[in-house]
Design a protein around this nucleic acid. Structure first.
Lengths: 250, 250
DNA sequence: TGATAGATTTCGAAC
DNA sequence: GTTCGAAGTCTATCA
């Protein structure tokens, strides 16, 4: 795992270290250092001299962490070019990206630690996404409503896609918009647009709109009511302390 | 900066290390290790045994990085309780959070490196946010249109706020929706809702809707046209290679 | 505390 | 390459 470690490397040593390992592209490079950081691209930022943890991953992503927060102080999700060189006696790291054109530049004032870590990838699974909800509801649409028949999923209509497209027991079309978490007014507007689009594309049809989510905000409920749309509570996970035996999706 | 470093610590040593430093709450704790990770809360996830970099920051944030991506494989933006203990001969880290109720559990199978880093905070400035655009346009509305007079900013109407509320040279009301980056159809719908709200609240007034952004997607342009709304190109930053002398905001 | 909208959002999928 | 929408989004702001 730990391929190489340097303590308080000199600027030229650090530059060589970074260059060598990012070229090889098989390790995560980490530098703990006092440095200044400049970013220019979608926005422009400057971080004064301070202590940061710089991470350069194999996939070309760059992130510079400060003392706080899960978000790096500066980052680059992908880069097309990472290079390190000595400039005015200091190691300078430049991470560039085209499309969008942007650059993160780190000037190391004093490096305390440099690591090259080889990280094996391993399996990862996550459940509880909206996709999972959709699968569960498609398998068992009666959770939404007795007699509902799913006609399609991710039905594309103009811009965007209808999560679930169905027909109710009375033959009306039903557009279902799913949210894995509490739904706000945005979700209702999204639903309203889909319902509108279906009404235009299927003239004469009666089209219902249903927002299916674990909960809704009060304003969202208002917008639902104004638009003649419906809300159906769908609980993805049972509440930890709930003794109620309720139909849940997982 | 480097307060303490352990190489291949035994489970009990690692647990004591983590407990001591997270209690003290003055350093960033990092552990490079082979581990398994479980998360349960808003969703549920499992990471198989693999090599990860675990970061515990002073503010209680937790992040576990894999080989790829700027995003951690698991994380916790805030925690109410972090604890480490030995369980079945292994060091186990549990990071909990109430509201929402969620837990990240890291089981260390083999720790390779543990660090305690003291990171001084330093100044940070960023420019180019939508707020900055709004300030610039409020100072100089003629960038949008000659003769425009700004009446209000962040005007609250029902749900949400109008970025810029103005009057044009012909006395018509103008609702301006700003986007710092390329605007999609969502932005247009947002604008349309604001225009609609103003029309309802100011009966009889002629209300224009203007989307001001560096660019728009093709579908967004269509929605604009259908809704009788306008687009005004507002370039926040001059394109790096542009020789055209254009009015820019910064 | 709840709701809303921005973010250098990131990320992945579909076209 | 674009566009779109989800995300365990996170974060700040404001009622």
């Amino acid at each position: 795992v730990l391929r190489e470690q340097l303590s308080s490397p000199a600027p030229d040593v650090l530059a060589a270290f970074v260059t060598r390992h990012t070229r090889a592209c098989d390790v995560l490079v980490q530098v703990v250092a006092e440095c200044e950081i400049e970013y220019a691209g979608r926005a422009v930022s400057t971080a004064d001299a301070g202590q940061y943890v710089v991470l350069l991953k194999c996939d070309g992503s760059v992130q510079i962490h400060g003392a706080k927060g899960v978000k790096p102080i500066n980052w680059q999700p992908r880069t097309d070019d990472i290079s390190a060189h000595v400039e005015n006696g200091r190691c300078v790291l430049v991470a560039m990206r085209r499309s969008p054109e942007e650059v993160v530049k780190v000037t190391f004032l004093e490096a305390h630690l440099a690591l090259a870590l080889e990280l094996e990838e391993a399996g990862f699974t996550l459940s509880g996404s909206e996709k999972d909800m959709q699968d569960a509801l498609a398998r068992n649409p009666s959770v939404i409503e007795e007699g509902l028949v799913v006609l399609d999923r991710e039905l594309l209509i103009g811009v965007g896609g209808v999560d679930l497209y169905a027909r109710d027991r009375e033959g009306r079309l039903v557009v279902v918009e799913l949210k894995r978490a509490r739904a706000g007014h945005e979700a209702v507007h999204q639903l309203a647009r889909y319902v509108q689009a279906v009404r235009e594309q299927v003239p004469g049809a009666v089209v219902r709109g249903v927002l299916a989510a674990p909960s809704v905000t009060a304003p969202a409920l208002e917008v639902l009511a104004r638009g003649g749309l419906e809300f159906k509570e769908v609980t993805a996970f049972p509440a930890p302390g709930s003794s109620v035996v309720q139909e849940t999706l997982f």
